[in-house]
């Protein structure tokens, strides 16, 4: 089986990656919108406007995501196993 990059079939794969992932920078270097670094923010959230984002707490989600990354990183540093099997199949959840 060959991997595909066919644009139609893999657009969602591309958007998932380009909009939600990639290297993260120190926040103070980034451009700020309304005092908040534009960093790890989903584009659709950016599209909805920063104010709406703040109002509905998307910023908090981002913060939580960062915390969970930090937590996992700490686990790793401490020599604990990452929780790789912690969320199993969709219906088992």
């Amino acid at each position: 089986m060959e991997p595909t990059r066919d644009t139609h079939a893999t657009l969602v794969d591309l958007l998932d990656r380009v909009l939600d992932k990639g290297l993260i920078l120190n926040a103070d270097l980034m451009i700020h919108v309304a005092g908040i670094p534009l960093l790890g923010v989903k584009l659709n959230a950016a599209l909805a406007g920063m104010e709406t984002m703040l109002k509905y707490g998307i910023w908090q989600d981002w913060d939580e995501a960062q915390r969970s990354i930090a937590a996992e990183e700490r686990r790793r540093t401490l020599g604990l196993a990452p929780e790789e099997m912690s969320h199993l199949s969709p219906i088992a959840r």
Binding site: V18, K21, G22, L23, L29, L38, G40, V41, L43
Partner: peptide
């Protein structure tokens, strides 16, 4: 890779 909209100032 960086994600979309990573802009330094």
């Amino acid at each position: 890779p960086f994600g979309f909209d990573t802009i330094l100032q």
